[in-house]
Design a protein around this nucleic acid. Structure first.
Lengths: 340, 340
DNA sequence: AGTTAGCACTCCTCATCGTTGAGTGCTAAT
DNA sequence: ATTAGCACTCAACGATGAGGAGTGCTAACT
C-alpha cells in the first residue's frame, strides 16, 4: 500500500477514535501536516474504500474505518513497538493479599478505572496449576470433600461422591500418598495420565488412590472469566440503544464465548487483539478485545485485558494493558515466592 | 378511600403495567364494567392525582401510577391473598446437586426465565450457618488454610496468617477440639462469644484453640448476592437510554446496595417488596425488588426474588416467586437431609 | 501524471409549522 | 352524583425548506 495512503488512513482512524463521527476529506486536509488538498485526500479515500479499509454510512457522509482497517492499524502498532525496553513494572502492594484471586481482581479493577472500559481477567487454569497439597475430608457416608491447594496458592474444593467411602484414616493416607507422588505436577496431567503409573501397584492404598484420585482431581481445564466495570459500556455512543447493549451483556452472563476467546489468547505469550467480526462470539461483533498474558517467567497463568467498542483508543489501551500485565506478573511472582 | 376510586386505581395500574403508556379516562371507561362515563372517571382521576396516587407526564397526557400507588396495590394483593392454602411445591430434581450453591443458582435461573426479569438470590449467611466441620491445614510457615463445612453443606475456605504456627498435628487437635465443642452452633456465635468459654482453661490446646479460632471463624455476616439475567433489563421501555441502564448496572456490580436490601428482607419470613424510591440504593429508584425468604422450617437461610422496573407485573411475579421459594425450600430441605 | 480548484449533487440535520388526536378541566344540564 | 359538551393543552407526526458537510467528477494547473 502507498505510504501516503497509509498515513492518511492512520489519520482517519485516529480522528474517528477521538470523535466517533465519520471523518471527511476536509478535516484530514486541514488537521494534518500533509499539505494536501481535500480533493487529493478524496481520491485516496476512494481507493481506501475500494480495498475495504473504509466505509460510508451514506453517500454524502465522511468515512468510517472498517474492522480490517483497525486490524491493519493494530498490527502496525505492534510492529513499530519500541523493542521491549521495558523495565519491570512494580506493583505498589497496598495491602497483603491472602488469596491470589484478590490480587487478580484488584489488577483488573485498576485497569478498568484507568481505561474507562470494561476489564477482563482470565484466572489461572486449574488443570494447569501445579499441585501443592491435597486433603480429603469425609463429610458423610458417601461424600468426600476434596481440598486442592495449588502452588500458585489457589484453593479449590469440590465434593465427590463415592460408592464406598474409606475411613478418614485411609483418606488421610491416600491424600498424603497423592501429595508425595505428584507434588509439583499439573493437576490436569495427574488426572489424565500420571495416575496410571500406580496401576501396576497392587496394594490396597494404591487402588484407593487411583479410584479416588480419578474423581478428586477432575478439574476445570479453563480459567475463570472475571468482568469488571461492565456498566462502563453504557458510556459509549456505539452502544446507545438497548439491542446493542443487550447482545454484549448477554455475553457477559453466559461467559462461554469470552472464556473461549481469552483461553485461546493465553496459549501464547504477549498481547492479543481480536477486532469486531474476528470475535468468535455472536454478541461481540461490534467489540474489540485486547488482552495480554500474565504469569511467571516460565509459565503463562492467564490473561488480563479489556473489552470495548471496535473504535477504542488502541495505543492508549495497549499501553495500559502492557503495564498492567507486567505489574500483575511481578505481583504474582512476588506472591508465589513469599508463600513457599 | 372511596371503594370506587380504589377500583379505578386498580384498573389504571393494571392497564399501565400491560402497556407502559399513560392511561386515559376514556380507556378506563370503555375497558371496564363500571359503566361510568369518561367524565366521571376524570373526576376520580383528578382526586387520585391530588392524593399522590397518580401523576401526569404533561397536562394533556393520561395518568401514570406513582410509587405510592404500587405500594397500595401490592399491600392489597398481599392482604387478599388466599390463606396460605399452599401445598408444598416439589422440586423436580433434574440432577443430583453436589453443592448447595448449584441448587440455589438453578432456582434463580429458573425464576429468571419464567418472569423475564432479572433474578436475585441471597445465599445463606455464613455467620448464621451451623458448624459441621473445621479443618486446619498448614500451608506455609505462618499460613493456615481453614476449611469450614456448614451443616447446610456449604464449604468456605480462607487463609489466615499466624505469628507462630503450630505443627500440623496440633492443628488437627485444635480442629477436632473446635468441632467437638461447637458442632451445630452458628459460626458467628462461636466467633463472637462461645470461644470465650474456653478462656478459663489453661491447657495449651485451649489457648491455641482460642487464638486460632478467633481468626479462623471470622466470617462474612451477610449472604452473597447472585444476579441472573441482568441483560433482561435491556428489554424494558423504561430503560431505553444509557443513563438509566448505567445506574442499575452499577448497582449490579457494586453489590453492597442490593446486599443490604436483600439481607434486610431476610430478617423476617415471607415476601418482601420495595418499590422505587423505597429502595435505599441510589441507582435503584426506578426499580422494584421482590423477594421471598427460603429455608427450612425453623431457619431462614436467604432470599430469592427478582428486580425489574416499578411497572412490573406484580401479581404474576409474586406468584412465581412464591412458587420458586417454596420449591427451593423443599429442595434445600431435601438436600440437607440427604447429606447428613 | 499527479494535484487541485470548481461545481453539481447527495443527503443528513435541524428548525419551523401546521395538523392531528388523545387527553384534560370546567361548566351546565340531567 | 353523573354526564354531555366544549374549549384548551400538548406530544407526536409529517411535510417543507434552508443549511451544511461531504462526495465525485471534470478540467485546469504544475
Amino acid at each position: 500500500m502507498d505510504p501516503r495512503a497509509e498515513q492518511i488512513l492512520d489519520h482517519i482512524i485516529e480522528q474517528y477514535i477521538q470523535t466517533a463521527e465519520p471523518v471527511g476529506s476536509r478535516a484530514i486536509s486541514k488537521l494534518t501536516e500533509l499539505n494536501l488538498s481535500a480533493a487529493t485526500i478524496r481520491n485516496v479515500m476512494s481507493d481506501l474504500t475500494e480495498v475495504g479499509m473504509l466505509s460510508q454510512p451514506h453517500t454524502s457522509a465522511g468515512r468510517v474505518p472498517t474492522d480490517r482497517a483497525y486490524r491493519y492499524y493494530v498490527d502496525k502498532l505492534q510492529k513499530n513497538k519500541p523493542e521491549e525496553t521495558i523495565q519491570d513494572e512494580v506493583w505498589p502492594a497496598k495491602r497483603p493479599y491472602e488469596r491470589l484471586e484478590d490480587l487478580l481482581y484488584e489488577a483488573a479493577q485498576e485497569l478498568t478505572e484507568e481505561t474507562h472500559c470494561t476489564g477482563l481477567l482470565l484466572s489461572p487454569r486449574p488443570a494447569s496449576s501445579k499441585l501443592n497439597r491435597v486433603e480429603l475430608i469425609g463429610i458423610s457416608g458417601t461424600q468426600v470433600l476434596v481440598v486442592l491447594v495449588t502452588q500458585a496458592g489457589m484453593v479449590k474444593n469440590r465434593i465427590i461422591t463415592l460408592k464406598e467411602c474409606p475411613e478418614q484414616e485411609d483418606l488421610n493416607l491416600v491424600a498424603s500418598k497423592l501429595c508425595e507422588l505428584f507434588l509439583g505436577h499439573a493437576i490436569g496431567d495427574i488426572h489424565e495420565g500420571l495416575l496410571e503409573t500406580l496401576a501396576g501397584k497392587t496394594d490396597r492404598l494404591s487402588a484407593h488412590a487411583i479410584r479416588i484420585g480419578k474423581k478428586a482431581l477432575e478439574i476445570e481445564t479453563s480459567g475463570e472469566v472475571y468482568i469488571s466495570g461492565g456498566a462502563n459500556l453504557c458510556g459509549f455512543p456505539e452502544f446507545n440503544n438497548q439491542a446493542s447493549l443487550k447482545k454484549v451483556y448477554q455475553e457477559f452472563e453466559d461467559k462461554r464465548g469470552l472464556s473461549r476467546i481469552l483461553n485461546e489468547m493465553t496459549r501464547s505469550a504477549g498481547l492479543h487483539v481480536t477486532i469486531g467480526s474476528e470475535n468468535q462470539a455472536a454478541g461481540l461483533e461490534s467489540c474489540s478485545i485486547l488482552a495480554r498474558t500474565y504469569g511467571t517467567t516460565n509459565s503463562l497463568l492467564g490473561s488480563i485485558g479489556i473489552i470495548g467498542p471496535t473504535r477504542i483508543d488502541y495505543p492508549k489501551v495497549i499501553k495500559a494493558i502492557d503495564r498492567s500485565s507486567r505489574k500483575l506478573s511481578y505481583a504474582v511472582d512476588h506472591f508465589l515466592n513469599s508463600n513457599t
